[in-house]
Simulated assay, not measured.
Amino acid sequence: MKRAIGVIDSGVGGLTVAHELMRQLPKERLIYLGDTLRCPYGPRSKKEIVQFTWEMVDFLLEKEIKMLVIACNTATAYTLEELQKQLNIPVIGVIQPGARAAIKVTKNNRIGIIGTEGTIRSRAYAQALTRINEHIMVTPLACPLFVPMVEQGILAGQQAYDIVEKSLIPLRSSEIDTLILGCTHYPLIKDIIQEVLGSEVSLISSSEETARETSIILEWNHLLNDSEEAPKHQFYTTGELDIFTKITEEIFHSKIENLQTVMIEKAVIC
């Protein structure tokens, strides 16, 4: 099946998922769309998040994708079930894979979650974790400053460290041994988060687990690409290309072709 896998995110964070998909599924073609113009989604209303997500999905459906990966935790929390019911292609989010990975790692059943305000407000991770293991104790924390920082390309240095350190103060007194990076932007500042919390806390990014689950779903549905041709990926952003290009090259460690800016927004929400 030569059709592409569609990947959507509120901005550049989902590129970490796209990178892992390309690593684990080297024959598959990806079409990525990051809504950097309207990022972050975290502080927005559910109505806005649902509309913006559907606008991204409609854009990718026109390109006849064979599967959709929602590489945004906030969008996953508010739209996954609806998209799975309404689309006739497989749809996967990043929350369930991340929750399963965290439960495998924790030794004391105390798991922290950091994410956008929308993701934390949805309680999607807490529900996913306790559905698997009712004895898990969850410590959620919204970190609204992280996504804007990453979208500006501030991924290292004193300014980034200060923002992370101040944001994570509430976790210092917790007894978590595992922390879910509940936003796909956060792996881009993973080293700073690790430095602030210390090596005794295991950090979980859902990217690896999401890619693994995508592979299983493609195989189960007989959708794997068996072509020997090298896939030609496409990357779209709704915002400026400069930062998007910079972060793309930082993640992929190489220059990426086929980067384009597109307009997808429809009627303004009243």
Score class of each variant (00 low, 15 high):
173 S>F: 11
186 Y>D: 00
182 G>Y: 00
189 I>C: 04
167 S>L: 13
174 S>L: 08
193 I>C: 09
177 D>Y: 09
188 L>H: 07
174 S>A: 08
186 Y>K: 00
178 T>R: 03
187 P>C: 08
172 R>A: 14
169 I>Y: 14
188 L>R: 05
162 D>E: 15
193 I>Y: 11
175 E>V: 09
191 D>I: 01
190 K>I: 03
165 E>H: 14
193 I>T: 07
188 L>E: 03
172 R>K: 15
162 D>K: 14
165 E>K: 15
179 L>M: 10
183 C>S: 12
164 V>I: 15
171 L>Y: 12
172 R>T: 10
169 I>E: 15
189 I>T: 01
179 L>G: 01
171 L>T: 06
183 C>M: 05
176 I>F: 04
165 E>L: 12
188 L>D: 03
164 V>E: 08
163 I>N: 11
167 S>E: 14
164 V>K: 06
193 I>N: 04
167 S>Y: 15
180 I>W: 01
172 R>S: 14
162 D>I: 09
182 G>Q: 00
184 T>V: 04
177 D>V: 06
192 I>G: 06
191 D>M: 06
172 R>N: 13
163 I>Q: 07
186 Y>W: 01
172 R>I: 12
183 C>E: 04
193 I>H: 06
163 I>P: 11
180 I>T: 02
187 P>N: 06
190 K>S: 11
181 L>V: 08
164 V>R: 05
185 H>T: 03
177 D>W: 12
175 E>M: 12
181 L>N: 02
174 S>D: 13
165 E>C: 13
173 S>P: 03
193 I>Q: 06
191 D>E: 15
173 S>V: 14
180 I>G: 00
175 E>L: 14
164 V>D: 10
188 L>N: 07
169 I>M: 13
170 P>I: 13
182 G>W: 00
179 L>Q: 02
165 E>I: 04
168 L>I: 06
191 D>S: 14
